[in-house]
Design a binder for these strands. Sequence first.
DNA 1: TACGATAATATGCATGCACATATTAACGTG
DNA 2: CACGTTAATATGTGCATGCATATTATCGTA
Lengths: 233, 233
Amino acid sequence: MTLTDTNSWTGIREVLLRRIHDRVWQPGEQIPHEADLAQEFGCARTTVNRALRDLAESGLVIRKRRAGTRVALNPPQRATLTIPIIREEVEALGRTYRHSLLERDLRPLPPMLHGAFQVSLGENVLFLKTLHFADDRPYAFEERYINLKAAPGAQDMSFEDVSANEWLVHNAPYSHGDLSFFAVNADKTLSRKLDTASGSALFAMERITWSGEVPITHVRLIFAPGYRMRTEI
Amino acid sequence: MTLTDTNSWTGIREVLLRRIHDRVWQPGEQIPHEADLAQEFGCARTTVNRALRDLAESGLVIRKRRAGTRVALNPPQRATLTIPIIREEVEALGRTYRHSLLERDLRPLPPMLHGAFQVSLGENVLFLKTLHFADDRPYAFEERYINLKAAPGAQDMSFEDVSANEWLVHNAPYSHGDLSFFAVNADKTLSRKLDTASGSALFAMERITWSGEVPITHVRLIFAPGYRMRTEI
DNA sequence: TACGATAATATGCATGCACATATTAACGTG
DNA sequence: CACGTTAATATGTGCATGCATATTATCGTA
């Protein structure tokens, strides 16, 4: 049994957590007020507040101003996953990373992206096709569009030494983005690039990032077979 | 331009964020102390602390006790994704949910899971095979093992009315879990169940949850073609 | 010079207080 | 009774302060 230092906010959080787990407080309706809990634990309301805020952040309780705090009905299963720079991900596996730039040109944005990626009509974007390797075996295939209005410096970069991913992280920080994961079948090109059978199921990720209202980049990463994205909850 | 109320912790966070984005503070080394910032903004150190803590949580800055606060070199791209109960996910799409239980029996744990899912040797676990539907079209295929030592009540449940997912969320809350995502090709069985061509690339999710040291359930969900898991960052 | 003890320092956290704000309950008026 | 106004209340947040703790710098001694 982990003995919780009674009046640290983490300690109080653990006690509250246990009560929720043990159904002392039923899902759905309310738990005592901050002030009452503070008195019970013999600590300041601030400390209880901190513990409750943390539980609210993880979705276990719902808090409303005058309505009080209640145990969530369906505690949402939240997972935070860290999407590393591919180079770091590969190196963390103890393998050596390299990438090769397959294509690089300026072109109009493909119509498919017009909805999600709003650049001025007729404006060219920088298109990159990259293959990432781990120990000389293909690791992921990347197709990327970069809005030069958002990252003008990109035009002067060859992206042969540093990957676009890495360069953008350091030079065109985003404020927000959309991220999605899905599965695709390897077509003929993909299977050749990723050295796998045609038709293989591949894990794919698509990401659009913005700096404020300005779209920065759209990237689609398709990983070699066997890739798993892991996290803990 | 969003005018930030100067001395709210969120306002201060925005200002700090902007300075990081604008490279006022270079990635890698340190930003002024809490006390100095507090003086600059004309607020209490607590307030600056709150803002910096928030930035640290999102990974943008690294804080160490005596070493000060520094801008992260490679701001990790963190995404929190919410894994809903399938019924809720389907209903949120405006479609009607149902599920059908295909198999239910007690069996020894398959050897493949012995490593990750530590139940006493020779102990039977409850095995369930379920198909989830949205508007009568297959949505996801589920294979699940439940440790009856962790959730004894499960033995008396038919899981024909409430899904195991939902029942477990409400009756055997977990403390932590492992989660992973990957892609699989539809084999003959899967393609029949999910009404798709054999060989289709399918998005899959695997999850193991524990309550303390005791494993509760292992579940593998395979979604019908076209499924995308989305989130914002 | 090497190395261990000690001091300095930046963040971490707890407290007590005050006021802000959202939301609900109570109330009063037509 | 319906409905808009007002009061009550629980959480949200800010402030000043003090002490805890981790880590680094410094100093003294062998």
